[in-house]
């Protein structure tokens, strides 16, 4: 089943308190795990996977682009950073 993936991130110029909290936790882990010591920041965004019947044709993609800009993201505080098509909903990496 074709799946359209939409990725949304908080606007780069806005503070991302969620990312900051995660970065803080990684910083604390970095004190005991040297591999994490050079992490300089984390931003947390959203990934939507929209499953559709049939082809992901131009009209469908245009409709999803519209949806991404108007519903899935709020342009005041977020940016749509990616839209792409894959063959199926994502599964865990083996």
């Amino acid at each position: 089943m074709p799946t359209i993936v939409v990725e949304v991130m908080p606007k780069a110029e806005l503070l991302d308190p969620q990312g900051k909290a995660v970065a803080g936790a990684l910083g604390r882990l970095g004190q005991t795990q040297p591999a994490l010591a050079n992490v300089t920041g984390v931003r947390v965004g959203k990934r939507f996977e929209i499953s559709i019947d049939g082809e992901a044709d131009a009209a469908t993609l245009a409709a999803v682009r519209e949806l991404a800009d108007t519903v899935l993201s709020n342009s005041v505080i977020e940016d749509v950073v990616g839209i792409h098509v894959q063959d199926a909903p994502s599964a865990a990496v083996a």
């Binding site: 908080p10 503070l15 308190p17 969620q18 900051k20 909290a21 709020n74 005041v76 505080i77």
Partner: peptide
């Protein structure tokens, strides 16, 4: 209304 609301800065 204009603008938007995000998480509090101190989390």
């Amino acid at each position: 209304l204009d603008g938007g609301l995000i998480r509090n800065d101190k989390g």
